[in-house]
Design a protein around this nucleic acid. Structure first.
Lengths: 134, 134
DNA sequence: CAGTGACCCTGTATTTGCTACAGGGTCATG
DNA sequence: CATGACCCTGTAGCAAATACAGGGTCACTG
């Protein structure tokens, strides 16, 4: 009857999410439990699709599930100040910044290490030497 | 008698590793099982300290435990070609490069998103809007 | 109307690299 | 001989999924 009711497989296909992941989001309180069909299949409505799309977008941007839970709660209270939203996003950006800084330092060390390798035998290998205690 | 025998606590302190982590490395085949004292305490020798230092250095450089296992095996065969060592290190560097690239793209998106926020109410929030399906 | 295959269900285990107990034993010091 | 610092084993937890095992349901075909 209602053509807008979706199975979990449809929801998965439309959002590029694995079926197991959708069940995982439900179990972890990110996606509300949908009603069930007579055969005990999950019956999703458009709101679920919207919510799952939101989650996927936020995940793609690297937000943690905790952060996404908070963002979802905020987006459900549309009259509130959005300062809290800004705080979560800025916190995440700072984490990303730190990761980039750390990885660049790491890369510099790896570059230095690998460039020294003259590819002889292990006994003379600069890489192994760099890793070994003096 | 032998002053060079170390307890797990000494090993931990000298390498900046937690005791549990050392036991974890042993269980996962990175550190060989040491002999035991009468009281069943692990009794480490200088070789163990060297090996653990190697592991810690490699971890600091971001190598996975699998990669470290391989590096350790290679460093034990000192006559072999070190091309395999170079391959592991280069593979890791490529992974780091990719992570940096991905994170910088991510950061650009986050910057764009956050800069639009005018910090009014959630209903008008550009961040929530960016995450929401159209 | 039975059979096939695609889909769905629950529940548990696995991944990575640790960390944190719980519930006990050992050892050195006062 | 008692206290506290250390050690032991074994198990469970974190993030964020992913991958079964062992079933049930549904739509389509012969």
């Amino acid at each position: 009857m209602n053509s807008s009711i979706l199975t979990i497989g449809h929801l998965a296909k439309q959002t590029g999410t694995k079926v197991e992941t959708i069940r995982f989001y439900e179990k972890n309180g990110l996606l509300p439990e949908p009603s069930r069909t007579e055969g005990n299949y999950r019956a999703y409505e458009p709101d679920h699709l919207n919510r799952l799309s939101f989650i996927r977008r936020a995940r793609d941007l690297g937000f943690s599930l905790d952060q996404i839970r908070a963002l979802l709660a905020l987006s459900d209270n549309r009259g509130q100040s959005c300062a809290a939203v800004d705080a979560i996003a800025s916190e995440h950006r700072a984490e990303v910044d730190k990761k980039i800084t750390d990885l660049m330092a790491l890369k510099a060390e790896l570059d230095r290490m690998i460039d020294q390798c003259e590819c002889g035998i292990v006994a003379d290998c600069r890489i192994i030497e760099t890793l070994s205690p003096k």
